[in-house]
């Protein structure tokens, strides 16, 4: 049996095919990495949009907008979390988001309740001080809503409010009763007492919301996402 020599042309052809395969593989690897980077940027943009909407709706107490953003969050978060480039390069922000997601899941009912209460508070704030009949009705509605709350996080605040609300309600009722029969000076005195209690009520609510914001750390997350996007843009 004789061994045939490989023709130089065949050898050259084989070398060219191997070269083509190597170059093409390298090109595909580069494209894949670029694609991962681009898709991680898209995922971060979507997530920061959703978080931004959640942040502003929490700030303004817009329950409907919050709930629609919350519905989009899971999908945006899953897309962000499952991106291999983010897993490889941005594990720190991923950890923060995992923590955020756990808090959010845990406090979902709490947030919903809080936003509903906020709607009531906004309504209270919008009532004309002189329209005490409507104000008292709103207070009653707020108290009913508060007493049906189930969130354990709200228990301590609930207690405080349940003590505060009857006081506020009785002051408003007495103001309402006094409106036409009391002298101007007595009325003014009652009015000042009412305004102080009302201010206490609003402050307590603001503190509650502030605690909530600290628990969620949404602004910090948004800033971290923003930094990450800037890094992605640069790379």
């Amino acid at each position: 049996m004789t061994r045939e020599r490989i023709s130089p042309k065949v050898f050259l052809l084989a070398a060219l095919i191997v070269l083509f395969a190597v170059c093409e593989s390298l090109s595909l690897v580069v494209s894949y990495q670029k694609y991962q980077r681009n898709s991680s940027f898209d995922a971060a943009t979507t997530l920061s949009t959703v978080l931004g909407i959640m942040n502003s709706s929490l700030q303004s107490g817009d329950l409907a907008t919050y709930q629609s953003a919350r519905a989009r969050f899971d999908d945006a978060y899953a897309r962000f979390r499952d991106n291999p480039y983010i897993q490889r390069k941005h594990s720190a922000i991923l950890n923060s988001l995992d923590q955020f997601n756990q808090t959010l899941t845990h406090e979902q009912a709490f947030l919903r309740d809080l936003l509903e209460l906020r709607a009531h508070v906004t309504l209270l704030d919008q009532q004309s001080r002189d329209d005490f009949a409507a104000y008292v009705r709103s207070l009653d509605s707020f108290r009913t809503r508060l007493s049906t709350l189930t969130s354990p996080q709200l228990d301590s605040s609930k207690k405080h409010y349940l003590e505060l609300l009857p006081r506020l309600s009785s002051l408003a009722t007495s103001l309402l009763a006094c409106e036409n029969i009391c002298s101007q000076s007595v009325y003014e005195e009652k009015r000042v007492a009412f305004a102080a209690t009302q201010a206490e009520f609003t402050d307590s609510f603001a503190r509650l919301e502030s605690d909530l914001a600290n628990t969620l750390q949404l602004p910090a997350l948004l800033l971290a996402l923003s930094d990450m996007q800037a890094q992605l843009e640069e790379s």
Partner: peptide
Amino acid sequence: ATKLLAGYSAT
């Protein structure tokens, strides 16, 4: 715009 506004809102 959404990305930028979210960033500004956070600060």
